[in-house]
Design a protein around this nucleic acid. Structure first.
Lengths: 218, 218
DNA sequence: GTGCCTGTGCTTACAGTGTAAGGCCTTACG
DNA sequence: CGTAAGGCCTTACACTGTAAGCACAGGCAC
């Protein structure tokens, strides 16, 4: 008698389920037992498809790196890098666990390599030296990851900045923190919106690089 | 008969021991039981001085934030921000667990508030609007944390970049990753050192802000 | 002194973690 | 049909954070 056959586990299915679980319930909820449960399987069965938990985490990072739009070398390098950065930013927001994993482990995989290759070849074709390419790539990524992490760590929904600021004010006596107090008051007022702006710092960096390129051409 | 009295536990002593333990053996080794052991005490005794592990982690972040040199408002704002950034960078390197903790939790405490106050008042006195102050502060910190995390995550000691690059080369066939392959070859050669450079991106951001200030003055 | 309260450190216990070791059962192939 | 391989399972272990409650000390009021 054919028992109700479930489709067999694969590395792919395990990783996709892991991404779904982390997206929905956060990185802390992503334990081997819980992940197994979502696949209607016992924890140890996962180990037939991933070497261990670290391998699984590496796998889901690789998966979502593949979601980032690659910059295309050869055209407008600034636009390409902007596209890349905002795409990465969007992907990191869609998978709020990802930025932390990326910055806390070594990521080596085809998707990551493709991502790097597209990035540095774009910068090279823009006319940057090897040294500048390396540093530019690093500066942009530092900003992307740092910005995203700070944003996600900030436990206030956009649209609630004013009310959150108001509730923070009592902790910030103006005698000790005059400027911080004033800024918080302005946010509570609605005079200053206080929202984070990803493109601000990104453009600062891109424009700085642009000047470098222009200078090198002269 | 007076038993050998050990000095009593305090929050201060607990937190300092936690910093020492994390510095020496990493964040993963910082468990309540191990921390208690270094103080010759049982794990549960710690809970008389910290509310729980999260509270303890918040405490050690506050402690090391206090180690950062504050920027002094009023003088050369760019130099002040540079000093602040490099001091923060050095502190984060001295406590390799810190950056990850900072970007993965809300930090509220007097040291953190003082740090923010000094930062934004310096930027305000430089002539930036509230909006620009907020964004500038955020951009700089994003870069600091992102850069540090990427650096610490990169498991190669400075001085071993060349040999590490050489051992990576086989993973990077030039057919698929021509530019990445070439850059890695140059690092293996010693032609390009491949080291990370904190000040590169920092100066990009500071110069961008400088131009904003100049433009606003006109 | 006695009684009491408070605070500090301890023991025990529980639910949850990653994963090593090994057993069973289905499938594929000779 | 017999055998081998592999996927999934159970069991077990060492470790985690921390709740509950005990033991004992010091300080205070009387």
């Amino acid at each position: 008698m054919p028992t109700a056959r479930r489709s067999p586990l694969t590395r792919e299915r395990v990783l996709r389920a892991a991404v779904r679980l982390a997206d929905k319930h956060g990185l802390d909820a992503l334990s081997m037992r819980r992940l197994a449960a979502t696949l209607r399987v016992e924890a140890m069965s996962l180990y037939n498809h991933v070497a261990n938990k670290d391998d699984m985490l590496d796998g889901i990072v690789e998966l979502i790196i593949g979601e980032i739009t690659l910059p295309t070398p050869g055209g407008d390098w600034k636009a390409a890098m902007r596209t890349r950065a905002t795409s990465a930013y969007r992907v990191l927001l869609a998978h709020p666990w990802a930025a932390l994993l990326i910055v806390s482990r070594m990521n080596v995989g085809p998707n990551m390599f493709r991502y790097i290759e597209a990035t540095i070849s774009t910068l090279r074709e823009a006319g940057l030296t090897w040294a500048h390419t390396d540093r530019a790539w690093n500066a942009i990524d530092s900003y992307i990851y740092g910005f995203t992490l700070q944003l996600q760590n900030f436990p206030v929904e956009p649209g609630e900045y004013a009310s959150a600021a108001a509730s923070f004010l009592p902790m910030l006596p103006s005698a000790q923190y005059p400027v911080l107090h004033e800024m918080t008051t302005l946010v509570a007022n609605g005079t200053h919106d206080g929202t984070h702006d990803f493109s601000f710092g990104l453009e600062l960096i891109l424009e700085g690089l642009d000047r470098m390129v222009a200078q090198a051409r002269r």
